[in-house]
């Protein structure tokens, strides 16, 4: 089982992801530079947070047009796992692996805070070690986390139970309080909160660990809780 963290120029949560997986969860993990083409060796690809390509034009727009994202699309089409956290979520919506878009926060401010997140659905590779309705705390740090989608998309997200995480006390104006969604096939996750920043007890919060543990259980072919 191998995790790969894609590093774009401007990614800045890549090291946090690496630390969480390697040190806290004892997993095999490698950085993947953004001009790499072959990512066949990896079971789970992580698109980390940050400001890829300076967030020029739109957050994630430049990263979405890189060669490696073609490989990530193929990886996802094979049913393998992809997670986009924060800027990674923005990249996944820009390439169309997830529906909707992330626009400027309602209050126009960059929000760096702890968000209160409710687990809406546990039937996914990313949430199977959590409880439905469970409340966890996860850090957020974004200026464009305000999720929008048209009515049809929202209807589908609800019907297929693709909304995995919602905010309690919506910080950014996201429609339906959405903090994280998966695709219809349930192998691609996008979320604005940072689980990788909540895995080390010394930093005061390990609520994010259960998300990575869910992925590990899923990849090991294990049962959900």
């Amino acid at each position: 089982m191998k995790f790969g963290i894609i590093v774009f120029p401007g990614s800045n949560c890549d090291i946090d992801c690496y630390y969480a997986l390697k040190i806290e969860l004892n997993q095999e993990v490698e950085y993947i530079w953004h001009d790499t083409e072959n990512i066949d060796d990896f079971d789970c690809i992580i698109l980390p947070g940050g400001f890829s390509y300076g967030d020029y034009l739109r957050c994630g727009a430049a990263a979405a047009n890189t060669r490696i994202m073609e490989s990530v699309k193929e990886h996802a089409q094979k049913g393998k796992l992809v997670i986009g956290i924060c800027n990674g979520f923005q990249v996944l919506t820009e390439v169309g692996l997830l529906p909707g878009a992330l626009i400027r926060n309602r209050n126009l401010k960059f929000i760096c805070d702890t968000s209160v997140v409710k687990i809406e659905n546990i039937d996914s590779p990313f949430t199977n070690q959590l409880k439905k309705g469970e409340i966890i705390n996860l850090p957020i740090a974004h200026g464009e986390g305000n999720y929008v989608a048209d009515e049809d998309t929202l209807k589908k997200l609800k019907e297929n139970e693709q909304i995995l995480f919602t905010y309690q006390g919506n910080p950014n104006g996201s429609i339906l309080d959405i903090a994280g969604i998966c695709n219809e096939k349930r192998n691609v996750l996008g979320m604005m909160p940072h689980p990788e920043r909540a895995c080390e007890a010394l930093l005061g919060n390990i609520d994010g660990k259960a998300i990575f543990e869910s992925i590990i259980v899923f990849l090991q072919g294990g049962e959900s809780k």
Binding site: A62, T93, P99, A101, V148, A149
Partner: peptide
């Protein structure tokens, strides 16, 4: 279509 606009929004 490819880059300058995100036609979702």
């Amino acid at each position: 279509e490819k880059l300058l606009a995100n036609t979702v929004i």
